[in-house]
């Protein structure tokens, strides 16, 4: 390869052009294929409301309900289920939490985490890797909600105390329609990553 430069100028220029256009062509081929992996446009995150009856949940009990986002596509229904935890807090848990001092990874005022202190409603979705934290550890002080997957620990308002979860459990919009019934309501993906009740109470 004895390139004296002058004879190959034209060839080198053409090579450069072709390589550049080839790169564009490869990109243009990859783009639709990669883009197709995005959420398909019929998988809407529509407005959904669902009532939950609280009367059967005894103090100290947690119930995990599935909030179903109804979706109809050309090939049938494809509902998205968002698990929601409803925890009936015992009066002594509430008292205990005010008395005992403990560290929080992501401090948020307690009043920002409930509408009625007797009820804690949040997404049953551990902020570590998404398991459902459904174990209540009454031997701990204050009482803990524990994630079965990697032992993440939260207080009874879903705030991280210890373990791998990086942040508090997400809340999601709800309101009391009567003393014993709440109404869950979501209308966009943003709604299910609320962190304080004020995030959805204003709206």
């Amino acid at each position: 390869m004895d390139d004296d430069g002058s004879v190959t100028t034209r060839r080198n220029f053409l090579t450069g052009c072709c390589v550049a256009m080839g790169a564009v062509a490869v990109g243009a081929t990859a783009f639709p294929a990669i883009s197709a992996l995005r959420v398909a446009s019929d998988l809407v995150f529509g407005k959904t409301e669902q009532e939950v009856d609280l009367s059967a949940i005894q103090p100290g009990e947690m119930k995990v309900v599935g909030l179903s986002l109804k979706r109809v596509t050309l090939i049938g229904t494809d509902d998205l289920v968002v698990p929601v935890m409803v925890l009936h807090r015992k009066p002594e848990w509430v008292r205990q939490m005010e008395e005992v001092k403990y560290g929080l990874k992501e401090p948020v005022e307690a009043v920002e985490r409930y509408i009625n202190p007797e009820w804690f409603v949040a997404r049953a979705f551990c902020t570590h890797l998404g398991c459902t934290p459904n174990i209540i550890d009454e031997s701990a002080t204050p009482v803990n909600i524990v994630c079965p997957c990697h032992g993440g620990r939260f207080d009874t308002l879903g705030r991280v105390i210890s373990g791998p979860p990086p942040s508090n459990l997400f809340l999601l919009p709800y309101r009391f329609v009567s003393e014993n019934r709440i109404n869950l309501f979501v209308s966009s993906p943003k709604d299910i990553t609320a962190t304080k009740v004020s995030d959805f109470q204003k709206a």
């Binding site: 639709p32 883009s35 398909a40 050309l74």
Partner: peptide
């Protein structure tokens, strides 16, 4: 559905 609702 692939033709109508999936991107590209």
């Amino acid at each position: 559905r692939f033709r109508r609702y999936v991107h590209w």
